[in-house]
Design a protein around this nucleic acid. Structure first.
Lengths: 250, 250
DNA sequence: ACTTCATTTATTGGATACACTTTTATAACG
DNA sequence: CGTTATAAAAGTGTATCCAATAAATGAAGT
């Protein structure tokens, strides 16, 4: 895993309005990256004791971090049942992408208006790194940088509130990608990010908006696809079926 | 203060993905309403001990609630300095209203598409209550219900994620109104909420979008107005001026 | 009298301890 | 052999305790 690009994907600012103490900020970022880059699969339990030992702090600090991640909907916390990596439902996934279309397209005018040359160059660099990651087959980094691109684009609008919202939507998108959709599906094709930079540089609001809408619909279509059953897991039945196919243990 | 309308203004759902235990959920809602209805002025310190005694729980639970409110940007938490009711900056205020325009206008198509008769009737009832509060001069309830209207309108879209975002934006708007802007300015005039219901009932997406944009710009203009200085509080000067006006103590 | 420095007080950050709930393991029973 | 009941284990929820930091008070010096 190369040098981290956490800075770009926000993950909450250093001073975030919360009382981030530096130490638990590090813990937060670690968990955040672990979840968003899919090192921790959706549904994975996150026991407080384990995390506390891992990071050499007490459960108190861990709980704070988990609460924060829960509020960002990256983990589920159920009463007396602890925290686990969130598993977005299909409906949730649709909401997320719908929200992204509305917000990212809606902010395009301000993004175009405030886009400066150096800012665009920074975006180009981000895309370069994204392509590099893709070429070397590092799909985790690739997805990560792809998300960072969208967030940084939004940051150009100068609207911190919207940027925070989008940061959350983008990280949740990563969870959606991890839950539904095959790895290569999401990361490989959609790297037309170069295009939109030039459209924005040209100052064409209409075209940029249309591009963004199409782009997001493409990503969504390539991922959500199947409405799968809630999976109460007829474990018994499944095992019986398998057993019938292989009547004896060889 | 009449029966509360907390349900409408969200304030986080009962099961919110966090481990809301019922007890601290009550505490959260209390504080939430107190802040949004401006019973607690922006900048008010919120000492943990005081709150703990008030609600008869330990500081631990209070801290959890404060963290949550901090994440929703209704309180500021600074390291080793505790929590206080947030004071949105002018820039923040602008961002909030800008975000609201993008999100609320952007969601109009889905709102119109999914609006049902009973849903619209519920909205009309909300407006009736808003007018009632206005007529009796209860500007707190009035502002509260006005916000609830926007949130409930968004809820019609069926997009929970966007509804959550808007809930946060609306409550922060209340803080902005409390910080800048005179009470009657904000609550009195803008009760054209009836109009948009009929436009939506008629299914006119274009008109509804235009209405919403104009409405939100009106609200913003009536509130933010002045870019005021950071107020390092020339306490001394102020007191001297007062002293000069009243040279002797009676 | 005003400023500066030291001490005291108040308040927060974080760790530990204990009560309670859920889950797992074990044993008794059908 | 499978099912249910009981007991142990693991894990979470909350309160309390101690250390660290910031605010407030008071003293000394200019």
């Amino acid at each position: 895993m190369g040098k981290r690009a956490s800075a770009e994907l926000g993950a909450g600012r250093a001073d975030d309005g919360l009382g981030g103490n530096g130490r638990d900020e590090v813990i937060y970022r670690n968990l955040f990256v672990a979840i968003v880059e899919n090192h921790l699969a959706p549904g994975t339990k996150l026991p407080e004791d384990t995390l506390a030992e891992t990071y050499g702090v007490s459960r108190t600090s861990i709980r704070k971090v988990l609460q924060r991640l829960a509020h960002e909907r990256l983990v589920d916390v159920r009463l007396n049942r602890g925290a686990s990596v969130a598993q977005p439902s299909v409906g949730e996934a649709r909401d997320i992408f719908s929200a992204r279309r509305i917000i990212e397209c809606g902010a395009i005018p301000q993004v175009v208006a405030k886009a400066t040359s150096p800012a665009l160059e920074a975006l180009r660099d981000l895309v370069r790194r994204e392509h590099a990651a893709q070429d070397r087959g590092d799909w985790r980094e690739s997805i990560f940088l792809s998300g960072a691109f969208h967030v940084e684009l939004m940051r150009l609008s100068g609207n911190e509130t919207l940027t925070d919202f989008l940061t959350q939507l983008v990280s949740r998108s990563s969870l959606v990608i991890a839950t539904y959709g095959s790895p290569q599906t999401a990361s490989c094709r959609h790297s037309e990010h170069d295009d939109v930079i030039e459209i924005i540089a040209a100052g064409d609001v209409e075209a940029a908006t249309r591009w963004m809408d199409r782009h997001l619909r493409d990503v969504e279509r390539s991922v959500v696809l199947v409405e799968e059953e809630p999976e109460p897991a007829d474990l018994k039945k499944i095992l019986e079926e398998v057993a019938q196919r292989r009547p004896k243990l060889r």
